[in-house]
């Protein structure tokens, strides 16, 4: 049993006497060499492949349509657009270095590789917000908007929850703090993005700024898989280290995600209040529905009342919706069977 408050040692790059297949996620023995065919959790290879298949870059998306439409947005829409853009960019900015930092203390090379891919994707997200900004407003205004995001008291209060946890792991990288960091990473990637997503998809519903929302859709798909990976990471961490799997830590998960839920509601009430067509009460319900999914992904029970997704339009675009898909060319599979539905005499529950 390892002491959950004992700092993890930064592992050596190569440990030739240890096996390639790590003996543990943390505090394990691992040579440092990665052979994907010999890993402790083979499902991680599938996840790695899925993440790579997501590869995209901002420059592939032509912003011309959005540039033209920008002038037709109301002043309020423009203001909120820019504030949400810089706020999301600041969240992604935290995530890139944190993921690479965690790599130093994880002993399983396959997990290190996945953290590296996640860090790369966060860097792409970060760039995409810059790319959107550069298409729409001059540098002087971009900088003002970033300053605004840095100074905004509600943004700061939100970020503080995450920052405190990330910083405390930097100061003293213990298993306990790694666990707490992982939960806050789920908050960041799995809860904090959604008021922003709601805004951009709401514009998309009105056929506005569709190139921006195409990027948002790519970002959401990536973030969903990151949150899924981190939830798997948490489950494995708790299973391998039963001393972390305590009543207090389970309570920590409920309390911390609940805090993020309240902060996301508060942020939505503030940033989306002047947007017609987004019902804030409904959004509150949405955030709880979302958080329930996060709890279940970690293997815990729902914390909020069970409900159906009240805002089903917040979701990743399908290839058909994107109308220009880079992957189509490679992935077009012929379907042998015609699509059938309940009108064919069976029930769809």
């Amino acid at each position: 049993m390892s002491d959950i408050n004992q700092p993890l040692t930064k592992i050596k790059l190569l440990n030739p006497t240890y096996p390639n297949k790590a003996t543990g996620l943390i505090n394990g023995e691992s040579s440092g060499l990665l052979n994907w065919n010999d890993i402790a959790y083979p499902q991680m290879y599938d996840l790695y492949q899925t993440l790579l298949a997501n590869f995209w870059k901002a420059q592939e998306i032509n912003m011309q349509d959005d540039i033209k439409q920008w002038d037709y947005l109301t002043e309020t829409e423009k203001d909120i657009f820019l504030r949400i853009n810089t706020q999301l960019a600041s969240l992604d900015s935290l995530q890139t270095p944190t993921m690479t930092h965690v790599m130093d203390y994880v002993t399983d090379s396959s997990f290190k590789a996945i953290f590296a891919v996640i860090a790369q994707q966060e860097a792409v997200h970060n760039e995409s917000y810059s790319y959107i900004l550069s298409s729409l407003v001059p540098l002087r205004e971009q900088n003002q908007r970033f300053d605004q995001a840095k100074e905004d008291p509600i943004v700061r209060k939100r970020n503080q929850l995450i920052l405190d946890s990330y910083e405390s792991f930097r100061e003293n990288p213990t298993p306990q703090r790694l666990f707490e960091l992982a939960i806050n990473s789920i908050n960041l990637e799995g809860i904090y993005f959604y008021a922003g997503f709601a805004f951009f998809y709401h514009l998309a519903r009105q056929q506005k700024m569709l190139k921006t929302s195409t990027m948002i859709s790519y970002i959401q798909r990536d973030e969903m898989q990151h949150a899924y990976f981190v939830s798997q990471f948490v489950r494995i961490l708790l299973t391998e280290n039963p001393e972390l799997n305590t009543e207090e830590n389970i309570q920590f998960v409920y309390n911390t995600i609940d805090q993020a839920v309240q902060l996301e509601k508060e942020w939505a009430d503030y940033i989306l209040k002047d947007i017609e067509g987004i019902d804030l009460e409904e959004f509150h319900g949405y955030v709880e529905y979302l958080a329930n999914k996060r709890f279940r992904q970690i293997g815990l029970d729902n914390y909020y009342p069970e409900r159906e997704n009240p805002m089903q339009w917040i979701h990743v675009f399908s290839d058909e919706m994107m109308n220009e898909t880079k992957s189509d060319f490679f992935e077009q599979k012929s379907r042998t069977y015609t699509k059938v539905s309940s009108s064919n005499g069976f029930d769809e529950l």
Binding site: Y337, F346, L349
Partner: peptide
């Protein structure tokens, strides 16, 4: 949240409808 929610269920559905007596999904 994914565009093809439970897509594998749909793929099985379409095949089972042709080859078996599909009752329910």
């Amino acid at each position: 949240f994914y565009p093809y929610y439970c897509g594998a269920v749909d793929l099985f559905r379409d095949m089972l409808y042709v080859h078996t007596n599909l009752a329910v999904t």
